[in-house]
């Protein structure tokens, strides 16, 4: 175990030395990796902010259950009990036909109903579901429709669905962008490692003659790729962080002008760590493929 650790520490030190030997090349590679990664990272962060904004604005999307006009107090109570036992119902409130009429009159439409002589409005329940999954709303809507004395069910989630669809589209776009740029980063590392293998072929051959195993020869290249990715990840993280800092105040002002409260946030610790881990993984992957491809012949 100690020997294994020593060999890894040595390989890491060797990789750091190689990075430090060519500071300009290292910096440029890190910039390329960092700038490419900052695009999907910023996109992800933007979506994350919009999603949290949407959660705040939509609050709990509502379903309205309009009862039959002949429904009496017993039927209203029965429906209330059924709503109380529904696991996916977060809360509900009863709107009596009298209260509904009052609200209508307050909205200025009282005159329209005045000529009818009696209150045509039904009793209603306004239900909030748990979570914001559009599928849950639709399932509840379908179930409520089957209940007795429920005349009409109205789902007020069309805009939520549209927002979710847009966020889904955004996520797919960010994922695609991340995959494409990630692939590009793998290629960048692949090529860097290829050049390193070419310049170090003498050392590789000598080491082989002296009894170096394949993992011994490969290990420093893996570390190099991983560290180059990590440096790129740090550049990306700094880029995104600076962008958020620069845009936070203008975005907040824009939100206030629309009467809303919104401020850009992130990247937080978890997001930062994920970005660094992802960047390191891409670097390692590029190195692993390159080593497999270019060292195979030398290691036979």
């Amino acid at each position: 175990m100690t020997g294994w650790l020593y060999l890894h520490l040595r390989a890491m030190a060797q990789a750091i030395r190689r990075l430090a030997t060519h500071p300009l090349g290292t910096l440029l590679s890190a910039m390329v990796v960092g700038i490419a990664l900052s695009l999907p990272a910023a996109g992800y962060l933007l979506l994350d902010n919009v999603a949290s904004l949407a959660r705040g604005v939509s609050g709990t999307p509502e379903i309205s259950l309009f009862l039959a006009t002949e429904a009496g107090a017993a039927e209203v109570k029965a429906i209330e009990e059924r709503l109380g036992s529904e696991a996916q119902v977060a809360s509900y409130r009863f709107v009596s036909r009298e209260e509904a009429l009052r609200q209508l009159e307050q909205s200025g439409l009282g005159d329209v109903l005045g000529g009818l002589g009696s209150n045509p409005l039904p009793d209603a329940f306004v239900v909030s579901a748990r979570g914001d999954d559009p599928g849950v709303f639709e399932r509840l809507q379908a179930r409520f429709r089957e209940w007795e004395q429920v005349e009409h069910v109205q789902l007020d989630s069309a805009w939520v669905e549209r927002l979710h669809a847009l966020l889904g589209l955004g996520r797919s776009a960010v994922l695609l962008l991340a995959a494409l740029l990630g692939f590009a980063l793998v290629i960048v590392t692949f090529n860097t490692i290829r050049l390193h293998i070419l310049t170090q072929r003498h050392e590789i051959d000598v080491s082989r003659l002296l009894g170096a195993t394949d993992p011994f020869i490969r290990r420093p290249f893996y570390w190099f790729g991983g560290l180059q990715g990590l440096l790129g990840g740090l550049v990306a993280l700094a880029t995104v962080w600076l962008t958020v800092k620069a845009l936070a105040a203008p975005v907040e002002s824009l939100a206030v002008s629309y009467g809303a409260v919104f401020s850009l946030s992130g990247p937080d610790l978890r997001q930062g760590a994920s970005l660094l881990a992802f960047a390191s993984f891409l670097g390692w992957l590029g190195a692993a493929i390159s080593v497999r491809r270019h060292l195979a012949e030398r290691l036979r």
Partner: peptide, 14 residues
């Protein structure tokens, strides 16, 4: 086997 060759070489002075 190819994987055993390095261990042989470690016992030889070349």
């Amino acid at each position: 086997r190819a994987a055993a060759i390095p261990y042989l070489r470690r016992n030889l002075g070349l």
